[in-house]
Amino acid sequence: MTIRAAAPMPETLRHFMRASQHPARAVACPHCCAHAHRPCVLRKTGRQLPEPHPQRVSAWAEATACCPECQVTPAVPCHEDGRARGTVHAGRYQEAEASAA
């Protein structure tokens, strides 16, 4: 039996094949622990979800965009009065979506 290694897919093809997916799938999901570029799943049943969890979208926005409200750079959590927020500001979502387009 011969085992063949698959040829690597060119990045240009990979980009067009993933174009229909939500850009938040580029990061791992902190809620269901789905790996990057894999769909989110329900933790009890393992059923794949058509849209990413809100926590994943928040993690994606934090990883890719600067926040116009609290003036932090990517990978730095949003804050209010020196305390970290649980989610990102709405303006950061808009910045992330604009940069993904």
Rank of each mutant, 00 (worst) to 15 (best):
R38C: 14
R38H: 15
P39R: 05
P39F: 04
P39N: 03
C40Q: 08
V41I: 12
V41W: 02
V41L: 08
V41K: 11
R43P: 00
K44E: 13
K44V: 10
K44A: 12
K44P: 00
T45D: 09
T45L: 14
T45M: 12
G46Q: 13
R47G: 08
R47T: 13
Q48Y: 13
Q48A: 14
Q48D: 11
L49D: 00
L49I: 10
P50L: 04
E51K: 10
E51L: 11
P52I: 05
P52E: 01
P52T: 02
H53N: 02
H53V: 01
H53D: 11
H53T: 06
P54L: 08
P54K: 00
P54V: 07
Q55G: 05
Q55N: 07
Q55A: 15
R56I: 08
R56T: 10
V57F: 07
S58I: 08
S58P: 01
A59T: 03
W60L: 03
E62K: 13
E62N: 13
A63K: 00
A63F: 03
A63I: 02
A63E: 05
A63N: 05
A63D: 05
T64H: 10
T64Q: 09
A65L: 10
A65K: 08
A65Q: 09
A65P: 06
C66E: 14
C67N: 12
C67G: 11
P68V: 08
P68F: 00
P68L: 07
P68G: 13
E69K: 02
E69L: 01
E69F: 00
E69M: 03
C70E: 05
C70W: 00
Q71T: 12
Q71D: 15
Q71P: 01
Q71L: 14
Q71E: 14
V72P: 07
V72L: 05
V72R: 11
P74F: 04
P74W: 12
A75Q: 13
A75V: 10
A75S: 11
A75R: 12
V76N: 01
V76Y: 00
P77M: 07
P77Y: 07
P77T: 07
P77K: 11
P77R: 15
P77G: 07
C78E: 07
C78I: 00
C78Q: 04
C78W: 03
C78R: 02
H79E: 12
E80F: 11
D81V: 03
D81S: 08
D81K: 08
G82C: 04
